[in-house]
């Protein structure tokens, strides 16, 4: 809409810094969302240390480690794709983002097989095997499914976010000079990685 006078500090201007600040603020809410779950985890682990230990033996450390490496690698590729676009190399940026999405898919596939194996053995809440477990182990598996499930959801969201950005890079609306959306999707992706960095030792590495 045309109007004759426009403020220098208008809210309708493109402001990369505002959008970056907004993204960070949103990440804080995500951190605290998982933070609430970590608090629950900490309390129940403190109350049931042995049950958590025994229950954790059911997880496959190596699959967890592979997934950690996969996510860390994807974090690197998304960070590099930002470097690429800032240097004006959109093509390289797209390739790196495609690698990131591929890593996300690998992560989810591995997660799918992990969950599948657990459910096959009846660890899903409400299943026979689950109901016969001691309370502490039930809590462990409940938290395991809840937290990795919520994290998996974030992986999917991050993936969609990156795919949208890829489309925008292709049509040129994200470019050398204007790339805050890519940076924000990168920030989001790093957060997904960051949370996994804590989930991994808390669930897989109790020994």
């Amino acid at each position: 809409m045309e109007h004759s006078f426009s403020l220098p500090n208008s809210g309708h201007n493109y402001d990369a810094k505002a959008s970056k600040l907004g993204m960070w603020l949103f990440l804080y809410t995500e951190l605290l969302l998982f933070g609430g779950l970590f608090m629950v985890y900490m309390v129940y682990r403190a109350l049931n240390p042995d049950a958590f230990l025994i229950a954790s033996f059911n997880l496959n450390v190596w699959l967890g480690t592979i997934n950690t490496v996969v996510l860390l690698t994807s974090s690197m590729t998304v960070a590099m794709s930002i470097t690429a676009i800032q240097k004006g190399n959109s093509k390289l940026s797209l390739i790196l983002l495609a690698l990131t999405v591929a890593a996300a898919v690998i992560f989810l596939v591995i997660k799918y097989f992990e969950w599948g194996a657990k459910i096959e053995h009846g660890f899903w809440p409400g299943m026979d095997h689950f109901t016969n477990l001691p309370f502490g182990e039930q809590l462990y598996f409940y938290l395991y499914f809840f937290m990795t499930g919520l994290h998996g959801l974030h992986v999917v969201v991050g993936m969609v976010f990156i795919l949208i950005v890829m489309k925008k890079i292709k049509n040129g609306s994200q470019n050398k000079n204007k790339n805050q959306l890519l940076e924000n999707s990168g920030l989001y992706w790093h957060l997904v990685d960051l949370i996994w960095i804590y989930l991994f030792p808390l669930f897989y590495l109790i020994h």
């Binding site: 480690t65 690698t73 974090s75 690197m76 590099m80 800032q86 897989y204 590495l205 020994h207």
Partner: peptide
Amino acid sequence: SYHITGYAEHFGTWVSLILLTFMTVFISV
């Protein structure tokens, strides 16, 4: 002007993260 991080720096970061991961797995297992 903003700072552009180089590819090498990202790669170095990745290497250190991988090393830390193996370290924590090793200690735990």
